[in-house]
């Protein structure tokens, strides 16, 4: 464990909690892409199956359980509790355009052709694109509430910190996980455009982030 990965995991947790609290307190999921949240729940469900097969550390177990619980709670709030505020007209990204290539690629590119390995690889590739429906929704509505942008900021920060973690582990431990690193870099690149808008619009106190 290193400070970059710890900060990254905390940033990831903060992002998930920010979103969950926003939906719970405002009793509405307007502007939130339910599809992205379902994809994230799928990412955790396919990646954390090793909870039942290998014990890494207490931290590892606790964080996996927390991420699974919070992501399913978010999906529950969006599609059940506050479904009448779910903005389905704007949450129209075709997730099959993500799932088909990700499934195909995880069968082609993996470390071992075993169910757990393929599911893990699937979850790595899926996480890289899971935010697309949310970013698509923001471009479609032309704006995002500031709390939603803070959610995206911490999500992007988590990915950027993981890249720092991999640089650190490469130099300190010679660790290099090609699938995770390549996919993680692609995922982080998707946030760059958002980061620019976040800094130039939200942090300038505009409140909402309205796209040009």
């Amino acid at each position: 464990m290193n400070i970059f990965r710890l900060a990254g995991d905390v940033s990831h947790l903060v992002a998930i909690i920010i979103l969950l609290l926003k939906i719970w307190r405002s009793k509405s999921c307007a502007g939130i892409s339910g599809k992205s949240q379902v994809l994230f729940a799928l990412v955790f469900s396919t990646r954390y199956l090793d909870l039942f097969t290998v014990f890494v550390s207490v931290y590892n177990v606790v964080m996996k359980v927390v991420f699974l619980a919070l992501s399913y709670a978010t999906v529950y709030l969006i599609y059940m509790r506050f479904r009448n505020s779910y903005d389905s007209e704007n949450d129209t990204f075709r997730v099959e355009f993500l799932l088909v290539p990700v499934i195909g690629l995880s069968f082609l590119e993996n470390y071992a052709f075993t169910p757990l390995e393929i599911l893990w690889t699937f979850s790595i590739f899926l996480e890289a694109v899971a935010i697309m429906p949310q970013l698509f929704m923001i471009t479609k509505t032309g704006e995002a509430e500031s709390i939603t942008t803070h959610y995206l900021f911490f999500l992007g920060l988590y990915r950027a910190l993981y890249i720092a973690n991999w640089v650190w582990r490469y130099h300190m431990e010679g660790f290099f996980d090609q699938i995770a690193v390549v996919s993680g870099v692609v995922q982080t690149i998707f946030y760059c455009d958002f980061f620019y808008l976040y800094v130039t619009r939200v942090l300038r106190g505009k409140g909402k982030m309205s796209l040009p």
Partner: peptide, 10 residues
């Protein structure tokens, strides 16, 4: 080889 390596990252 890498498949057996413990995946310790979240």
């Amino acid at each position: 080889e890498k498949a057996n390596k413990t995946k310790d990252e979240l």
